[in-house]
Simulated scan of single mutants.
Amino acid sequence: MAGSEEDWREALRAKGYRLTPQRELVLAAVEKLSHATPEDVLAEVRRSSSAINLSTVYRNLEFLEELGLVRHAHLGDRGSTYHSTSGREHFHIVCRKCQRVSSVDPEVAAPLAERLRESYDFEADLGHLTVFGECTSCEERPDHDHEHE
């Protein structure tokens, strides 16, 4: 990880940017939390610094995404969820019942990507793909959603 960290620091310097302490805190929070909303990132950053507010987190997430250090995905009604690009490329599956998010290797969707390329002359961005459904453990449980209505 130290080598890749130095790589992106060097890439930032080459583009004339620097990783400010605020940006570093936001990036570290995203990396620690794995999949996090801006509010999740703010809560994590606030453990180290109370000088950062939500608008600062949003600005830094946008900046870090422009640089390719983080990505966002839409994992349901939570809004954008951010994850670091330092890990392996992946797409997401989300259970509509228990809200569990799982990362899936893009090779699983390779046949779909190939079909889109051949049939539609379309290059899919699998990193933004989210597939919603129901996990097996939820399928096995009786549905109790109506008890709370």
Rank of each mutant, 00 (worst) to 15 (best):
R100C: 01
P111H: 02
F91L: 15
K32I: 00
F63M: 14
H72S: 14
H90W: 06
G68P: 11
S49Q: 11
L27A: 02
I52C: 09
A110I: 01
H83P: 00
I52N: 04
E31S: 07
S55F: 12
P111I: 09
A36P: 05
R117L: 11
F91D: 04
E66G: 14
S86V: 13
A28T: 03
H74V: 14
V41F: 06
Y17R: 03
P106R: 02
A113T: 06
E118M: 02
L42W: 09
L19V: 01
E24V: 03
F63V: 09
E24S: 07
H74C: 10
P38H: 14
D121Q: 12
W8R: 12
L116R: 05
T20C: 05
N53R: 14
E31Q: 12
D77M: 04
S80P: 12
N60L: 02
L69Y: 15
H92Q: 08
A29Y: 01
S80F: 06
T81W: 03
E114C: 08
A113K: 07
S50N: 07
P38W: 07
A36W: 09
K97F: 05
F91Q: 02
G87S: 12
G87C: 04
L112G: 00
A11G: 05
G79F: 08
R23W: 02
P111D: 06
E89V: 10
S48G: 05
Y82T: 14
K32S: 12
R59D: 15
A11N: 10
I52W: 10
A51L: 12
Y17F: 15
V108M: 04
R117S: 11
V70S: 11
T20Y: 04
L112N: 03
F91I: 01
E44S: 10
T37E: 11
W8F: 15
H83F: 15
T37G: 07
R78D: 13
A73T: 13
C95M: 04
D77V: 09
G68R: 06
S50R: 07
L69G: 08
V45L: 03
H74F: 10
A43M: 00
R47F: 00
V57K: 06
R59G: 15
K32V: 06
E10L: 11
E5T: 11
T37V: 11
K32A: 12
H92M: 05
P106D: 07
E44V: 01
Q99V: 10
H92C: 15
R59Y: 13
R115F: 14
V26N: 10
L75R: 05
D7I: 12
S86D: 03
H90S: 12
P111C: 02
Q99E: 15
S49N: 07
V45K: 08
A28K: 13
G16W: 00
R18I: 05
L54F: 14
L19R: 02
E65P: 09
Y120K: 14
L69S: 05
H90Y: 07
P38L: 00
A28N: 09
T81M: 12
S102R: 13
V26P: 04
L69R: 09
G16D: 00
R13N: 02
E62D: 09
D121H: 15
A73D: 12
V41M: 09
R23Q: 11
G87E: 08
N60K: 05
G68W: 03
R96P: 00
L61M: 11
R100A: 10
S119Q: 10
P111A: 03
L27G: 03
V30R: 13
L42E: 01
R71Y: 02
